[in-house]
């Protein structure tokens, strides 16, 4: 771990204390887990504290963990992951916040802290159905007008449920159930730890 990451971890430890439920450093990046209840205060602290100073929210996205790993995911289903950047200190941080309810996932909006979160949160709402209380204008963004469902959830098929075509009789575009058969070309495989290791296998 480089000196810079060491310093960042120390500063995080010092200022966030037990606001984080988990903090780890992997592949040269620091990540923290935050509870939804203390999410907003932590984010304000991350932005305003001079020893952290994350001026920019670079990215925010939703994740659906329901099919994670080979033996099923035990924890909460939906999470919101943000990537913060500090121009002053030239470091980055990943903040993950799990939504407490799986049926009605909701995570406080950070638009008032970083305005760049606006469309990212609209996108996460559109694709995952995560609601962001406090967002000024939470509408669908990427999907079709009048779209039903949240397409990036793991239980939503890649081919979707409806397709559209031009109907010459009605002389307009109509929606109909999809005619595509779902198929998987390469199966998804999670190998055991020392698979293919001739010496120790």
């Amino acid at each position: 771990m480089s000196a810079k990451l060491e310093l960042l971890s120390q500063n995080l430890q010092k200022h966030l204390g037990d606001r984080t439920t988990k903090m780890w450093c992997a592949l040269g990046e620091v990540s923290i887990d935050v509870e939804a209840s203390g999410y907003l205060e932590t984010m304000v602290l991350l932005r305003d504290e001079p020893e952290l100073r994350f001026e920019q929210l670079i990215d925010l996205c939703g994740i659906d963990y329901s099919t994670y790993g080979c033996d099923g995911w035990q924890g909460k289903r939906f999470a919101v992951v943000s990537h913060l950047t500090s121009i002053t200190h030239n470091w980055r941080l990943r903040v993950r916040c799990f939504a407490s309810s799986d049926e009605f996932p909701s995570v406080p909006s950070v638009v008032s802290i970083w305005n760049s979160a606006n469309w990212f949160e609209r996108e996460a709402f559109d694709l995952f159905g995560i609601v962001f209380p406090g967002h000024p204008d939470l509408r669908r963004l990427l999907t079709d007008y009048g779209f039903i469902g949240h397409p990036f959830r793991k239980d939503f098929p890649v081919s979707g449920y409806v397709e559209m075509r031009y109907d010459p009789e009605q002389r307009r575009v109509v929606y109909q159930p999809v005619t595509i058969e779902p198929r998987e070309i390469t199966p998804r495989i999670v190998r055991e730890e020392n698979y293919g290791d001739v010496e120790n296998g």
Partner: peptide, 15 residues
């Protein structure tokens, strides 16, 4: 331009 990749150890990205 950033790529945020999550892997659960499979041969495909998880997210």
């Amino acid at each position: 331009f950033g790529i945020y990749a999550v892997s659960d150890g499979a041969n495909k990205p998880y997210r």
